[in-house]
Every structure is written in structure tokens, then in C-alpha cells.
Design a protein around this nucleic acid. Structure first.
Length: 464
RNA sequence: GGUCCCAUCGUCUAGUGGCCUAGGACACCGGGUUUUCAUCCCGGCAACCGGGGUUCGAGUCCCCGUGGGAUCACCA
């Protein structure tokens, strides 16, 4: 499930929550050729993982089921028969070859394709037992059909431009247009918030509703979500990722919800980040944007980091399951909690956890040459890195390793040695963590404990 | 090409005729706090697509351009 699709799902879900309504998930699997094994589960999983589980659907059930179109074929057949009877639908035996030719002609003429109603003529009727499709007979009147779109406003289309679209395919499955209309009516759908690309086919749906003498739902066509680079619709080519991939990278569901909501919607204030209950409270159709939005991952990442920082430590700890470096496996939960507290303000997404915390669980080996390079740098020309480490080792070897005792031992040491604290602390940090940047030195040393710190200092000393 | 939609900083956006010298946020660039990184704080850069109207007054309303997008299937 794509981020664009999930944004549509989110808006529907928010609107249902906002109005005290019910959100419905319906699987529209009427294209047997494109059916992907496992896709339904993946869709349901994504919605659940994002915390926007529908109220009714294939998994949830509900009184309007089944919620899978391939299980509702009898319903479509029955309604198609009704429209065939009334003359709104007619049989068409035209071959794909003939249609392809017609389409090529239309393109050459510079007009949109419209079926020529060849099979409407009695003399062209085929055998009813032979494979054929059912087309919708676009009426001559009224001249145009339109609706008040909840986000676009009044929209009108001329019937003369509309094609006699296929309602039932040769394999007896309904097309999207037909199944969608029948189901929206049968399931008593009041609001349809769907992507922009459906705009041109909405007149077809309206015509179908009229043919059945049914009341159409309120439509709200959502602006597209564009890829970060071009102005094209978000797609795999643009590096678009599935919801599951974002979750795997350690983006929080609540951050994804807040960010996705901001793509094409805002409440008119300067608030940037929303808790989900605020989203539900403030979400209205009138505030949905008309113009498309680009997916800006940097902004998502910022929002995610912000929410990580603001999260209760124990809650964050629960969310980090599966994100720790393998070396952390045997560590206690208490220790992991302590470590997490030290990196919380640096975490942008959970996948960063290993690189930020590995040294808390594994010995640095200085194999990257950083230690040697630092030792050779001009900064340690006056006082060598080795001297710094040796002095530090001596200063801390008998401490209780509380943060306070470490600080009262090390600050004066720098002064006594006549070096800047940054230089001394940097040396210790590098020896103990193997990195040039890490959480605060005293917190880090305290977390690691005396035994580990001394061992690492000795190891570094030995290599210099 | 036909039909339809859209148009404010690089990006997400505020703006519903005077509160606009166009606001906020991300990113970026400075500065401060600090033992590093990060956080946090302060500051800066940066936009109404163009042209005509309407109006005392237009980012806001109308028209025409221009640009971008969607769609034109027995796919959804």
C-alpha cells in the first residue's frame, strides 16, 4: 500500500471519526488478470499498523458484507439484468481488434475515444450465448451532468463527451464503475473521499446512479500526492515507498498520520503537528486543498524526530522492539532503557538505533583508523592523546562512576593538564566509544560502568 | 490532441476584498548555550506565474494567456 493510497484511507477514516460515522473498507478485486496474491492482507495489515483500521471490512465484518467484490458477483448480475431490461445497458460483441482500430482512429482524429454503438443496431446483434460485454447507453438528455464536489465545488461534464463504457466484462465480472456504484448504494455509503484521478469518471457513476434511480453519495476528490522530484504522481520511480517500508524504517504511526494529514489538509492555524485526536476533532472537508502536494520526506523525518523526543521513555522503549543492534540481545531491559534515554533526542527514526548505540553493547575495535588518525592530528601536538587517556584512566579508576563523581574528577583534570576540556573529553570519548560523537560523556561513562570503561581505555592505550 | 482540474517562499502551507511591508513550519545559512553530536534558543535567506478587467482598494473576484497535472481500457 502506497503513501498516496494510505492518505486517502486516512482522510476517509478521519472524516468518519469526525462525524461519528463508519469507515468502510471494500476490496475491489474485479480484475482477475491483475490480482496479486496476498495483496488484500497487505492492505488490511497496513491500515492496522497505521492505526486507521476500518469499522467495517473484510476482516471486521459488518451488516453490508461481503466486503470483497469477487464475492458479490450475483448482486452485480442481478442489477445488470435490471438495467439491461430497462435499456440502460446493451450487449456488445465487438472484438478487441475492432475497438483497437476505433481507438486508433479517434487518436488520429484528435478526439477522445467514444464507442460507435455498432452493436446497438439490431442487424449487428450477435448470439446472446456468445461472449459479450454490457455497455452503458449514455443518454442524450440532459445535455450535461454534474455534482457539487465537497472539495472542488460545482463540476459539470457534457454527456456528448462521454463514452458508452463497459459495465459488465466478457468474463461476467463487473467493471469498477458498475460494481462501485452498486456497492456504494447497497452499503449506504454517504461520502466518498477518493483520489483526483477519479474526477473524469465520476459522471459515469452519476449516470449509473440515475439509471437505477438511486441517490449518489457526496464526492470529495482529493488532490494528488506528487513525488519529491518531479511533478508526476507519486510512484515507485520517484522513490516512493510503501507504508510498510516507512514502518520498517522506524517511522511512528502517529507521525505518519500527522504528516500525511498535512498533505492536502490543514485547519487554518499555524499548528504543524497534530495528535490523532486533534486531527479527528479538526478535520473537515472544506479545509482540504485543491492543489496537489509533494511528498517531502525531510519534513516527515523532522516530525518523526520531534515525536520521538516528546514521547515518554517507557513508551518509546516499547516501540523500539526489533530495532536494537544484534549485540544488544543479551542486555537487560533496564540497560536498554538507560541507553535509549541517552539517545532519545538524537533519534530521527528507529532504524538509526544501531548506529547510535552499538558501542553501548559491543567493544569498539578502532579498526576504522579513527583513533590513530586523531592521535596524529595537530590538536594533540602539545599533549598527546595517549597522555590524555593515561591521565584519565588514573583519575577515574577508583571512582564510583556516578555522573557527578566523574565530572568532579575529569573537569579539574583538564585544568591540571593545561588542556581544554574538549580535548580531554574528546580523547576519552573516542577511546571509550570508538566515535567522535556520542551522548554526553559523563552519562555515557556512567552507563558503561567502571569495568568496561577501564578495559576500553587500556585497549586504546595499548594501540597507541 | 479532446475533456476536466490546478496555480503563494525549494517544500508543506496561512490568507475567503482593506488586518499583507504576504505569516508559520521543513530544509538551508549565520549566531548563542554546550565536552562532541544532537537538543534548545535567537537571527537570516526565500513566494503571490503573466496580462487585462471589476473595485476607492486584489494574493484574495472575473476574463484571457502561460505553466503543471489527471483522464480518454472488457485497470482500478
Amino acid at each position: 500500500m502506497h503513501v498516496g493510497g494510505i492518505r486517502s484511507a486516512l482522510f476517509n477514516w478521519l472524516w468518519a471519526r469526525h462525524t461519528g460515522g463508519v469507515s468502510v473498507l471494500r476490496l475491489e478485486d474485479t480484475d482477475r488478470a491483475r490480482y496479486v496474491e496476498g495483496a488484500p492482507d497487505q492492505i488490511c495489515d497496513s491500515l492496522e499498523a497505521l492505526g486507521i483500521k476500518p469499522d467495517e471490512g473484510p476482516r471486521e465484518g459488518g451488516k453490508y458484507g461481503p466486503y470483497v467484490q469477487s464475492e458479490r458477483l450475483a448482486l452485480y448480475a442481478q442489477h445488470a439484468a435490471q438495467l439491461l431490461e430497462s435499456g440502460a445497458l446493451y450487449r456488445c460483441w465487438c472484438s478487441p481488434e475492432r475497438l483497437t482500430k476505433l481507438r486508433a482512429e479517434a487518436q488520429a482524429a484528435g478526439v477522445a475515444f467514444k464507442y460507435d454503438r455498432h452493436c446497438l443496431k439490431p442487424e449487428n446483434h450477435g448470439d446472446e450465448s456468445a461472449p459479450h460485454v454490457l455497455r452503458f447507453r449514455t443518454p442524450e438528455a440532459p445535455a450535461s451532468i454534474g455534482w457539487d464536489d465537497a472539495v472542488r465545488g460545482r463540476l459539470d461534464f457534457k454527456l456528448a463527451d462521454l463514452d458508452d463504457f463497459v459495465a459488465i466484462k466478457a468474463d461476467t465480472y463487473p467493471t469498477y464503475h458498475f460494481a462501485n456504484v452498486v456497492d456504494d448504494h447497497l452499503m449506504e455509503i454517504s461520502h466518498v473521499l477518493r483520489a483526483d484521478e477519479w474526477l473524469p469518471s465520476t459522471p459515469k457513476h452519476l449516470l449509473l446512479f440515475a439509471a437505477f434511480n438511486w441517490q449518489p453519495p457526496t464526492y470529495a476528490h482529493l488532490p494528488a500526492v506528487l513525488g519529491p522530484n518531479g511533478n508526476k504522481k507519486l510512484s515507485k520511480r520517484d522513490g516512493a515507498q510503501s507504508v510498510q517500508e516507512y514502518l520498517d524504517e522506524g517511522y511512528l504511526p502517529e507521525a505518519l498520520r500527522s504528516f500525511l494529514a498535512s498533505l492536502g489538509w490543514n485547519d487554518g492555524t499555524t499548528q504543524e503537528v497534530y495528535a490523532t485526536d486533534e486531527l479527528i476533532k479538526n478535520f473537515t472537508l472544506e479545509r482540504i486543498q485543491k492543489s496537489p502536494a509533494k511528498f517531502d520526506k525531510e519534513r516527515l523525518t523532522w516530525m518523526n524526530g520531534l515525536m520521538i523526543r516528546q514521547m515518554d521513555l517507557d513508551e518509546l522503549l516499547r516501540r523500539t522492539d526489533g530495532f536494537w543492534p544484534p549485540e544488544a540481545t543479551n542486555s537487560s531491559l533496564d540497560y536498554r532503557r538507560q541507553v535509549l534515554g541517552l539517545v532519545q533526542e538524537r533519534l530521527k527514526f528507529l532504524r538509526e538505533l544501531p548506529e547510535l548505540t552499538r558501542f553501548f553493547f559491543a567493544e569498539p575495535d578502532y579498526a576504522d583508523g579513527l583513533l590513530a588518525a586523531e592521535a596524529a592530528s595537530d590538536r594533540y601536538a602539545e599533549t598527546s592523546l595517549r597522555d590524555c587517556l593515561a591521565a584519565a584512566r588514573q583519575a577515574v579508576e577508583n571512582l564510583d562512576f556516578s555522573e557527578a563523581s566523574l565530572e568532579t574528577a575529569l573537569r579539574p583534570l583538564a585544568e591540571a593538564m593545561g588542556v581544554k576540556t574538549g580535548l580531554l573529553f574528546g580523547a576519552i570519548r573516542l577511546a571509550v566509544t570508538g566515535q567522535k560523537s556520542a551522548p554526553g560523556l559523563f552519562e555515557t561513562l556512567h552507563a558503561l560502568g567502571r569495568e568496561t570503561v577501564l578495559r576500553r581505555l587500556d585497549k586504546a592505550l595499548k594501540q597507541l
